[in-house]
């Protein structure tokens, strides 16, 4: 059966979002504490065995570890190389002055999914904050507030303050990551740049201009389960029609979820994800795609594992 004709309705109101808000449950802080312990343990292992990401020069020196192919040659210790004829890189603890910037997408498209994408994104942001505290980094949160980019300074900020801020946030409007990235001066001194959102308003070509020497860029793409895999929907089981609505415009498309439509969607999504992965690999940017029903701990750990 072919999909039925799609159309766009003009003048209709934006549809209601299924999960626009953020709420941290009672057990969230416990989960966050356990995550912090795991991050700390991972960091200690890293300092001994060594991973390269998020550990760079100009920091408090803690030791050496063997060089891995692809690592920045500037971190190679030439003296050790000359002495042992084997490559080693310097391992250092981050200095207290190191700054991370977390850019959170809170546009209307983040209100989709169940649980909501913004919910998981907010939980990930807090996970990053906890990790930053362990790493000794200072982290700023960037998000749109009343239509304007807003930076929430992380210096000395308590976790509770961040939680309160995020709980007052709601997915709304069209201002996503693209609007935040339009003012790069706000995070020019960021040693690590985290982009957390569905990346719906970004193109892979936007990433290269963010790179700079010594900066780590980490993309966390959060998709709704049905966005990642529409075959999960009950309509896909029976080949029924779904009226798709764009949360950030008045567009609607009625699509019968038959095999043809699902295959075409899967092809389009696969191509888009592949483009992101390719640009990320080329510019040594961390790229993680998760669905909003993924536990935030797994997301944070996956980000730091790269």
């Amino acid at each position: 059966m072919k999909p039925i004709e799609a159309r766009t309705e003009r003048g209709r109101r934006a549809p209601p979002l299924p999960s626009p808000g953020v709420r941290f449950g009672e057990g969230f802080l416990d989960r966050l504490g356990r995550l912090a312990l795991r991050v700390r343990s991972r960091r200690e292992r890293r300092e001994g065995g060594g991973e390269a990401r998020l550990l760079g020069g100009g920091m408090e020196f803690v030791g050496f570890r063997p060089y891995r192919p692809g690592e920045d040659l500037r971190r190679l210790d030439w003296n050790l190389f000359a002495r042992h004829r084997r490559p080693f890189v310097r391992v250092s603890r981050r200095e207290s002055s190191e700054r991370w910037s977390v850019l959170l997408d809170r546009s209307a498209s983040m209100g989709t999914g169940f649980p909501g994408k913004l919910q998981l994104a907010a939980e990930v942001v807090l996970g990053l904050k906890a990790a930053a505290n362990i790493e000794g980094a200072e982290v700023d949160l960037h998000l749109m507030v009343r239509g304007e980019p807003h930076r929430h300074r992380g210096r000395g900020a308590a976790l509770a303050e961040w939680m309160e801020l995020l709980e007052s946030t709601e997915a709304r409007g069209r201002g996503g990551l693209a609007r935040l990235l339009a003012e790069p001066g706000r995070f020019k001194d960021a040693r690590a740049l985290f982009l957390v959102g569905d990346l719906a308003d970004l193109q892979p070509a936007d990433i290269p201009r963010l790179t700079r020497s010594g900066r780590d860029i980490l993309l966390v793409q959060v998709l709704a389960p049905e966005e990642r895999d529409p075959t999960r929907l009950p309509e896909a089981t029976h080949g029924d029609a779904v009226r798709w609505a764009d949360p950030e415009s008045t567009g609607v498309r009625t699509v019968r979820l038959d095999a043809h439509a699902l295959a075409e969607y899967e092809r389009g999504l696969g191509a888009r994800l592949e483009a992101w992965r390719a640009i990320a690999a080329h510019h040594r940017v961390s790229f993680t795609t998760v669905t909003s029903d993924t536990p935030f701990e797994a997301v944070v750990e996956r980000v730091f594992a790269r």
């Binding site: 549809p15 209100g111 569905d198 709704a224 929907l233 798709w244 609505a245 949360p247």
Partner: peptide, 10 residues
């Protein structure tokens, strides 16, 4: 009528 769903991958 078809179920209306909101999606970021419109």
């Amino acid at each position: 009528r078809p179920v209306e769903r909101v999606t970021a991958t419109f």
